[in-house]
């Protein structure tokens, strides 16, 4: 082996780890290059959306099920953490964990009966749940603040170190997002993850090979709900203000669009989709008027021409191109 071959081998072998290192380095250096609070605010949103989309992507891509209600878990995380830490004056970290546990329980209660069925009942059940929670957030205004929102949520802190400046929040949020990403990357390569991939590929084949398909689906649903709740709590504690409109059914479809654009089942795609759709309004002036058309159009075009998503789809195209070129060169 020449040294170049050895280097290429090393790069291929450790491609995932190297990519994670590169992204982490990018996140680490970003505030040094650009500490404009507005840009940092956008990067916060990207990190938070990535956290939600990572979980949802795992559920859609690996369990082969549809959830159109992840904004519910996101919203419950945000409101739950806000109410517990502000109204009851509990420490933000503790409230974050408490809410995540409650959301896990809720996801379990819904997931166990609904995921037992074949067919896409969960899509409607979660959509219905989203509607119910949204109504409660608006109607129960003595607790949630109603349509005008909930303000004055305390920031997270470690001992005396308070995450109250945009730069500090940047590191906090990206630490969570990258941590979740690392967890996902390892999970899909573990035995559990391989079992899930089998479920997505062919449920009957997977169950005949000894994968407990129902339990696997429920576990992933709960995991994705917990990630969404965590993202919601972080959102509430870093922005300090939340309102019900962030957690409506249209927010849920936005999360789904992020998953589809990135590629169902692709973890890097999830991060890409979250970043792409969060930053899209920044690049388009006419976005406000045509938001629905742009979002719907992107979803339809991606599904029609690259159903594997932009990241996986383009990668596959490149791989095929390379393989053909190698074949032609050798022939």
């Amino acid at each position: 082996m020449t040294s170049i071959q050895r280097l290429l081998y090393f790069l291929t072998l450790h491609r995932t780890g190297l990519a994670v290192c590169m992204v982490s380095l990018g996140a680490l250096l970003f505030p040094v290059l650009d500490d404009n609070p507005y840009t940092l605010g956008l990067s916060h949103l990207v990190a938070i959306n990535t956290l939600v989309v990572l979980g949802l992507n795992l559920f859609i891509g690996y369990a082969g099920q549809i959830s159109l209600g992840h904004a519910t878990f996101f919203g419950l995380g945000a409101y739950g953490s806000a109410i517990i830490s502000t109204t009851w004056a509990v420490s933000p970290w503790l409230s974050l964990i408490l809410v995540a546990l409650c959301v896990a329980l809720l996801a379990l209660v819904i997931g166990i009966p609904v995921l037992r069925l074949s067919g896409h009942y969960l899509a409607m059940a979660t959509l219905g749940l989203n509607f119910v929670v949204y109504t409660i957030l608006i109607q129960w205004d003595e607790v949630t603040g109603g349509p005008s929102g909930f303000a004055g949520i305390p920031a997270l802190s470690c001992a005396d170190f308070v995450f109250d400046t945009p730069v500090r929040q940047h590191y906090l949020l990206w630490a969570f997002a990258l941590g979740a990403m690392l967890l996902m990357l390892n999970l899909v390569r573990s035995g559990v993850g391989r079992g899930l991939a089998a479920v997505a590929g062919d449920e009957i084949a997977a169950s005949s090979l000894g994968v407990n398909t129902q339990a696997a689906k429920v576990k992933i649903f709960v995991l994705s709900a917990v990630l969404a709740s965590l993202a919601g709590s972080l959102f509430a504690h870093s922005f300090g203000y939340i309102s019900p409109d962030t957690f409506g059914i249209f927010a849920s479809t936005d999360f789904v669009i992020m998953v589809v654009v990135g590629g169902m089942g692709s973890i890097w795609g999830a991060a890409f989709g979250a970043a792409f759709l969060t930053l899209l309004p920044e690049w388009m002036d006419i976005f406000d008027t045509y938001k629905d058309l742009v979002h719907g159009g992107i979803l339809v075009l991606v599904l029609m021409f690259l159903p594997q998503g932009l990241v996986t789809g383009l990668m596959d195209m490149l791989k095929i191109r390379w393989a053909l070129r190698r074949h032609n060169a050798s022939a």
């Binding site: 159109l68 479809t253 589809v260 045509y290 719907g296 979803l299 339809v300 029609m304």
Partner: peptide, 13 residues
Amino acid sequence: IFLTVGLSIILRG
């Protein structure tokens, strides 16, 4: 199913 979701968003727009 996701296509119908996308078409529904476009139609609403």
